[in-house]
């Protein structure tokens, strides 16, 4: 464990807590993409299949349970909670996220480190996580008026993978034979997808005006 990875995990944790806070307290998920939340639930479900077979640390297992629990409960809230589900703008959140799942699955079947069931699904979760934010970014472009909590959620979610990139650089420099192109490229693509959001987020923060993404 290094400071970059810890910062990344804490930022990631903060992003899901911000979202859960928003949905649980104001009973609203306006501006939140259910498609992205469903993709993240799939990412965690396929990433943490080894939770029962391999144990690294209490921290590792605890965080996996938190991410699994939070992502599935957010999907539950947005689909089935009587008050929250009414605030979900179904008409705007129309990204065909299944068109992201299949290519990631095919790519994982083609490019992986080992051709085993767990490894292919784990690689699939890496590719899917890289693009899982797309429905949310599209929704933000459409809804334009981004409330603070949703903006913070996307900002923290984008920041966590950025910290992970620093973690991979650190591990590459300090651990011999630590080379994982698949993880690195997927993580880099993921962070780059946030680039324009980050630009507009900092602009709005600097000029102290509401976050507006160009149409």
């Amino acid at each position: 464990m290094n400071i970059f990875r810890l910062a990344g995990d804490m930022t990631h944790l903060a992003s899901v807590l911000v979202l859960l806070l928003k949905i649980h307290t104001i009973k609203s998920c306006a501006g939140v993409s259910l498609k992205t939340q469903e993709l993240y639930a799939i990412v965690f479900a396929t990433r943490y299949l080894d939770i029962f077979t391999s144990f690294y640390s209490i921290y590792n297992t605890l965080m996996k349970l938190i991410f699994l629990g939070s992502s599935f409960s957010i999907v539950w809230y947005m689909r089935y909670h009587k008050t929250v589900r009414r605030t979900y703008d179904r008409e705007q959140d129309t990204f065909r996220h299944w068109f992201l799942v299949l290519p990631c699955l095919l790519l994982a079947l083609l490019i992986h480190e080992k051709f085993t069931f767990l490894e292919v699904l784990w690689t699939f979760s890496l590719y899917l996580e890289a693009v899982a934010i797309l429905p949310q970014l599209v929704l933000l472009q459409r809804t334009r008026n981004i409330d603070n909590l949703t903006g913070q959620y996307v900002f923290l979610l984008g920041g966590y993978r950025g910290f992970y990139i620093l973690n991979w650089i650190y591990r590459y420099l300090t651990e011999p034979h630590f080379v994982h192109w698949i993880t690195w490229i997927a993580g880099l693509v993921q962070t780059l997808l946030y680039a324009d959001f980050f630009y507009y987020y900092f602009q709005s923060w600097k000029n102290n005006k509401k976050l507006q993404l160009p149409a």
Binding site: R5, D50, S54, Y56, S57, N60, F67, W122, H180, T183
Partner: peptide, 10 residues
């Protein structure tokens, strides 16, 4: 065994 992969990461 602590394998050298990124599996110990979240």
């Amino acid at each position: 065994p602590k394998d050298r992969s990124t599996k110990d990461e979240l």
